[in-house]
Amino acid sequence: MGLSIRRELKLREWREAVREFERIISLIEDILKKRVDPFTVDISELLEKMRLLLEKYGDEVLLMDMEALSRIVDLIKEQEEWVQNESLVLGMGPLFALARLRQMSLEEIAEKFCEVWNPIAYRDQMMVSTVLRALDYLDAVRRLPKTLTGVESVDFRLSEETLSNLGLLSEEAFREKLSEFSRKVERLLGEESSIDYWDLVLDDTFEKSLENMILLSYLCSRGEVSLKVNPLTDEIKVVKPGSRGDRFSLALPFNYNIWVRRIAEKKKNRREG
């Protein structure tokens, strides 16, 4: 009985020690992430605390100790960078810089920047791989329908034929995917008046998300759905097609980094929501 109580007490103490290590790690991570002055932490105090814990618990906390030590190395590196940049800042705090940048127009900022900018002078040259890529592109363009050539191409709509000519999708697979996606959008628009664009297209993989974007753009060009953009918030909503007022093209940059960021935002919103 006494042995079990002693074991229980030891386990509790060990848990407390692990929590202490976790506190140190999260403190440093917070500083690095939120860009707080890294000198607000007394590193020697942290090291002393870690030394005592390591002495008391030995191998049982070795991994945690190593992790905390690695974070302290990051913090020291951060302190070094902070000092290096301190001379450049000349006492100008982030709020001051923020206020000044907010006040200035784009032209003024660019004009001031040009006064201190000496751009590198070089000539671009094409490598064999780039030439081959260009040839592939020209070959793909040649296979596009003729409506794409010339300025009249504004009426061009992305067709299955085009996609299959470009080797993106087989005709059958595309039709199947499109009708499945169309049904999904129709069902969602039946439940709500609008859907957030990114909520609709983002999927578990980058490839699938990109595919959804292509399918949605096809539905838009067929007039089955419309997009509503809020210029103030940059929010894009998918809505049922309304009156055929002013039509415009919308370019949305999308790459792997954007996908990772959007997915992270989506997860964060879900957690907060």
Binding site: R35, W82, G93, P94, L101, L106, I109, A110, F113, C114
Partner: peptide
């Protein structure tokens, strides 16, 4: 600034770069 265009830059792109640099420096790196 008027020469930027001929170098392949837009005024707003350069303003984005300048803002990013000043802001990064003001936050010490």
């Amino acid at each position: 600034p008027e020469e930027l265009k001929s170098c392949g830059w837009r005024i707003d792109e350069i303003a984005v770069l300048a803002t990013a640099i000043v802001y990064i420096l003001s936050l010490r790196g």
